[in-house]
Design a protein around this nucleic acid. Sequence first.
DNA 1: AGAAGTTGCGCG
DNA 2: AAAGCGCGCAACTTCT
Length: 566
Amino acid sequence: MSASPTASERRILLAAVGSGAHIAVDLDAADVEVGREHLSARDLAGWVAEAEERDAPRWIIRSARETYAPLLAEGIRLGRTHDLLLCHAILRDTASVPQPLEPSENWVRRDAPDAEPGLFDLFESDARVDTVVEALAQYRAQRHVIAAASDGRLALLCAAESAGGLVAEEMRAAGVPWNEGVHHEILTRTLGARSLAGGLPAKMLALGDQVRTILGDATLHLDSQPKLLRALHRAGVPVESTSKWELAQYEHPVVEPLLEYKKMSRLLSANGWVWLAEWVHRGRFRPVYIPGGVVTGRWASAGGGALQLPRSLRPAVRADPGWMLVVADVAQLEPRMLAAMASDAAMARAAQGRDLYAGVVDSGAVATREEAKYAVLGAMYGATTGDSGRLVPRLRKVYPRAMALVDAAARTGEDGGVVSTWLGRSSPKPSAEWAALQSAATGADVDPVVVTQARRRARDWGRFTRNFVVQGTAAEWSLIWLAEIRHRLRGMPTAATPAKASGPFADAAHLAFFLHDEVILHVPAELADAAADAVREAAAIATTRLFGSFPIDVPLDLRVTESAEK
DNA sequence: AGAAGTTGCGCG
DNA sequence: AAAGCGCGCAACTTCT
């Protein structure tokens, strides 16, 4: 991935003009009209494939979701893009340049995540005066803003974000290799045999009866929070909620079976047989990823709960015969980013090696690894009370630079200001309602209740901006990591044994899963070691791209395995 | 009846 | 209200 288009880079704008037809514009042609190509739905895939093969251009597209998914279905892969929707979201709000991009409703991603363009959308795009002219204007406006950031950070961010858009679609097309048999076994082992009549599985039935007996209410409906709460009170368990952390505080015979029941209930409703039938088809789980779906730049997901897969189901992620998984994650990515962002040499020293928390203990700041963990998390999340809040000041002594960075971000937020990640993604402004509350709380003769409330809301927003800079920069590291992994996999030979699934990744090593600081690759066995090297190299590149020569360790836990089970 | 809000829990 | 960030989803309750 290059940070910005080079002089020799060919750029082609690809704009949908309705009914699958597109217009391609070679932006480097002397005359834009000359470089303009009308493509029917039939011609599109072939033309794109040929251009990709010949020039490996950077494709300027409205969004990977809209443009790339149909191409992938035809077996066509794109190398590089500039994703106008994703970049619009970054550039319209960036505080990295004096003049951010003029926001435009036409370039805001629709919220409905997997909504196919409906009648209305088609009507809209057909009715548009000239999709191509509009896209071209938007692209030029974006390039202008990117160029205004002379350090190249926005260019890097936009390139990485666009690559992320491609990865998301490719992972959806490829899917996570999922062994339905293993999943079924886990369900049966944990919950008992599935009821044919659509009732609860055997173990849950028995456990539910046990709980009802202990609570002395034979007809109690355990899924109703208010009813369960009243039954607990009657049985002498004075909890204020039915949450597991609170229940766990009490010594009562009902606690253990109830917690067990709740755990089972969760597994059944979130990832039970119904989920399996709906989301896994022919050995692949295909979640919908939404790059940049979180304010901080992290990815969100829609449908399938891709980002909440319980660890207990990991064993169901299985490589196809003749293939392997490369499973890699970064331990404590966020504090490592913080150390580098702040150029905090002491914290970077603690981050040397696999366990940052052990390094914090070695620095003398705290006594145990557990304390180090709470202190570091508290520093990034803005803890003020409890064990965590108590430990944070100790870090302030040992890592003053790192702490100054997050403290400043919090202060900016409390004052209603905007903070930015390392590459320049900026936090949203607080709501008008928030601002109104703050001004209502200033001045003489203000109701102390209002003042207290305003202070609390200000601190809430400060904790958000404090975390924003760290979480957002970690998301940027991960994005570059992903893009670099993808880049390296593209250069690898095809598989000796095809995978079970058809499609563009049936014979090619590919990314299969991504979760904030973790990736799973599905690769032909003979390429597994090379793929593992690619993952390591990509991580090293990500670190260098962001922080240059600043010495920060970002070690990977990496396994080449047939099963994602830990 | 269906929308909107609440609770609780999975993930980082 | 898990002492402290960011999410998505299901099931239930309450509002309209």
